[in-house]
């Protein structure tokens, strides 16, 4: 006689077992636990704090602020970066464990913003020092825009492959070479790559086949400001 417990709805092996690849599984985990570095240098930081507050609550996306770069996956560069600060930003970025992602939040971090032309001290965009994945325009961007940028970043994280098929490198410097030469993870062309064989979609509603990625950083709301 069949154990009545096994016949309960939801207890069928078909409903309990998920078949996937290790890489897909790791990417899924990374995407949903983007711990970000508690780091802000200017007024955009206020919007970043607001985004972490109860009204916008990025905790629900698995984004927990970390006070040390060694535990952080994501650096949100929120605010004006001066030439003096830039080397510190670079140090923090180097202390983050790989894979690491960078969101440039606001006009200052994108391009120097209101200070880009007449200031002797402000860096003309943080991408001169560290590779940036997503640029969010605005002065400051509203929390909605930041969350939009995070969603664009999650697309990139989902495509990151830890074990194999590294052809879709998420660390691509846009707008010129990195000032410090090539950096880890930047191995090869940024152009379209062949679709990774075996990179099957996970069974969580997203059944469309993966398409080759262009290798360009994601842009939201029209790209760098």
């Amino acid at each position: 006689m069949v154990d009545p417990g096994i016949a309960r709805p939801g207890n069928d092996p078909d409903e309990q077992v998920l078949v996937t690849t290790v890489d897909e599984f790791l990417a899924w985990g990374k995407e949903n636990s983007l711990f970000y570095l508690l780091f802000a240098t200017a007024c955009c930081g206020i919007e970043l704090m607001q985004t972490g507050g109860p009204r916008y609550d990025v905790d629900r996306l698995g984004m927990i602020p970390r006070a040390t770069p060694r535990q952080a996956d994501l650096m949100i560069v929120a605010g004006t970066i001066t030439h003096k600060m830039a080397s510190r930003v670079r140090t923090l970025w180097e202390q983050m464990t790989e894979p690491r992602w960078v969101v440039s939040m606001g006009s200052c971090a994108n391009s120097g913003g209101p200070f880009s032309k007449w200031s002797y001290s402000v860096l003309n965009g943080v991408d001169k020092y560290i590779p940036v994945d997503v640029y969010i325009p605005g002065c400051p961007p509203r929390p909605e825009a930041l969350i939009d940028g995070v969603m664009a970043l999650r697309e990139r994280v989902r495509k990151y492959r830890t074990l194999g098929m590294r052809d879709r490198d998420p660390h691509v410097v846009q707008g010129g070479d990195c000032a410090f030469g090539s950096h880890p993870g930047r191995d090869g062309a940024c152009g379209p790559s062949s679709a990774a064989p075996g990179a099957l979609a996970m069974s969580r509603g997203d059944e469309s086949p993966r398409t080759p990625q262009s290798g360009k950083p994601a842009q939201v709301n029209g790209g760098p400001a």
Binding site: H83, K84, A86, S116, Y120, L123, N124, A179
Partner: peptide, 29 residues
């Protein structure tokens, strides 16, 4: 205290010559 230690010049002097670059990064686009 504000500028990097190897900065050249004193920026609030009226005859300050704006640098073209710092640390290999151009000041202007």
């Amino acid at each position: 205290i504000m500028c990097p230690d190897d900065w050249i010049g004193h920026p609030l002097r009226k005859d300050y010559v704006y640098p073209q670059a710092y640390n290999g990064i151009a000041h202007l686009r």
